[in-house]
Design a protein around this nucleic acid. Structure first.
Length: 481
RNA sequence: AGCGGUAUCGUCUAGGGGUCAGGAUAGCAGAUUCUCAUUCUGUUGACACGGGUUCAAAUCCCGUUACCGCCGCCA
């Protein structure tokens, strides 16, 4: 076991986002590849927006994806608690340390004053930065503010110079400190800001590598300053490109699903989702794209991740999901399929029959939700005819001839012997092809249309077997005019 | 505006001074099949632009453009 430690630190202000899932995946992969630890920390310092329902969704989604964590709020660990709201007593101690060493100072500015300052700089077309007006307050001035009832926030005193670091995926990055204003580390309500809490937590939790989205790059400079002021070891950083919607904007609700749980509800398999998202930035060294989590972990190289943004396109996700659906163990797939077909009377079939139904329907689909419609004709007595199937297929002369012929044959069909049934269907095809010049496709279309209301779907033999003699006969007869 | 980042087929990407610039997906065409599906085969399609450096640049350097991100007592 190496001492590499990485973490995913979502804030429970929403369900687990697909982008967060990818970040979690890369952290997990890196830990796996290097025999390190993968830690889950819940960043709920913003009590207003945090919600335990979302925390649960984060747990559930991560687990469903198979991204198991070694330490976290629920499983514990040596560096807990792993939920920031339970760590509120820790941050003031570090803030005090910074105050004493002069790295931080109390700021008594009110939101209104700050707002005015900001507007002033905007008016002068200057980049907005805190004026530092509280940077060197005397004890008397502070006392005066206190007497007015003002409660200070604590700001970090940004030093002169540059903050540089080597990003594992972006390369060397430089920041001019003079462009970074003194930022708040403790709010006046005595809770830490994000930048302060992460540093304290990552430091206390002994994180060695911080792998996160590139929207945090600018924060990194601030965080490094805090690490240094605290005399702590600065971890390695790796910033990933973002996942964008096809219109190149941030992936949001209006583009469809954004949360892992929403994708699952739409019929995506977590394995496919994970595999797909891994390919956004990372690519397999052997060119084989469909891989298990474990295989990806073995082939994972953090420094070779693409550093550009990538667009989330459904085309390939759908294809990949279809691949997983085709390959999945049928019993497992049936379990996953049930929510999508529970609108029907599933008790009318045995479990083995249900599995047969799914097995024969899975082939062409790319999303499980397609099953709802694709499996419809297996249920109920009658048939719903799709589009112009009735006029264009069933009512044709040829079809009528086929259906009449079939109607006479049904009594001899081997409903309980799939192999024989297939032979009998083949005989019908040959019969009509040889005697009437009707293409196999056409004769089967007549049958299929009569018993399913459509011209494509599952294997006819399976459909007939599952429907049973009664229903097949009735449905065929109902189409003879 | 400023600061930071990125730029290879529509999309995800491989490659990285000399390649027919490779793969996947999507598209298109064909084949198989009881199924306009699946599967199989074939095929269209890209180095953002402009300057350098070099015998040679998609690859290295500079600039431009475009896009993304950041500029909160949000995380």
């Amino acid at each position: 076991m190496s001492d590499i430690r990485v973490r995913i630190a979502p804030s429970p202000s929403g369900n687990l986002h697909i982008g967060t899932a990818r970040t979690a995946l890369f952290n997990y992969l890196f830990a796996r590849k290097n025999n390190g630890k993968f830690i889950l920390r819940i960043e709920d310092t913003d009590l207003e927006r945090s919600n335990t329902e979302y925390t649960q969704n984060i747990y559930d989604s991560l687990k469903a994806l198979g991204l198991n964590w070694d330490e976290g709020p629920d499983v514990g660990g040596n560096y807990g608690p792993y939920q920031q709201s339970q760590r509120f007593d820790i941050y003031p101690k570090y803030a005090k340390k910074l105050l004493e060493s002069g790295w931080a100072y109390e700021c008594f500015c009110t939101p209104e004053e700050l707002e005015a300052e900001k507007e002033e700089s905007i008016k002068n077309k200057r980049p907005h930065m805190y004026s530092r007006r509280c940077a060197n307050l005397t004890e008397e001035e502070k006392a005066k503010f206190r007497a007015e009832g003002r409660i200070p926030a604590i700001r970090f005193r940004v030093p002169e110079g540059e903050t540089n670091f080597h990003d594992l995926v972006k390369g060397d990055l430089h920041f001019d400190n003079s462009l970074i204003g003194d930022f708040v580390i403790m709010k006046s309500n005595n809770t830490p800001t994000y930048n302060f809490a992460v540093v304290v937590d990552d430091m206390e939790m002994k994180m060695t590598h911080i792998i996160r989205g590139e929207d945090h790059i600018a924060n990194t400079a601030k965080q490094i300053m805090i690490y240094k002021a605290l005399g702590a070891q600065v971890p390695e950083f790796a910033h990933l490109g973002m996942i964008l919607a096809p219109d190149r904007s941030k992936l949001s609700k209006r583009h469809g699903a954004t949360a892992v749980s929403e994708f699952v509800e739409k019929g995506y398999l977590t394995e496919a989702l994970l595999n797909f998202v891994a390919l956004l930035g990372w690519s397999p060294s052997d060119g084989v794209e469909i891989k298990t989590l474990e295989e990806i972990a073995q082939d994972f190289r953090l420094t070779e991740i693409s550093s550009s943004n990538s667009i989330f396109e459904y085309d390939k996700l759908n294809w990949m999901n279809g691949q997983y659906i085709k390959r999945m163990d049928i019993s497992k797939l049936t379990d996953l399929a049930i929510p999508f077909i529970s609108c029907y009377d599933l008790n009318s079939y045995t479990r083995p029959q249900l599995e047969k139904m799914i097995a024969s329907t899975r082939e062409p689909i790319s999303v499980l939700s397609e099953l709802t419609n694709d499996v419809k004709y297996f249920f109920g007595e009658g048939v719903e005819f799709e589009g112009d199937v009735m006029d264009k297929v069933i009512k044709t002369e040829n079809s009528q001839m086929v259906l009449k012929y079939i109607n006479e044959q049904i009594k001899d069909w081997a409903f309980d012997n799939p192999e024989k049934l297939h032979e009998q269907l083949a005989d019908i095809r040959t019969y009509f092809k040889e005697n009437h010049g009707i293409k196999p496709k056409e004769s089967m279309w007549a049958l299929r249309a009569a018993i399913t209301g459509r011209i494509h779907g599952a294997d006819l033999g399976v459909i007939i077997e599952l429907l049973g003699k009664d229903r097949v006969e009735k449905r065929v007869q109902a189409c003879i005019f």
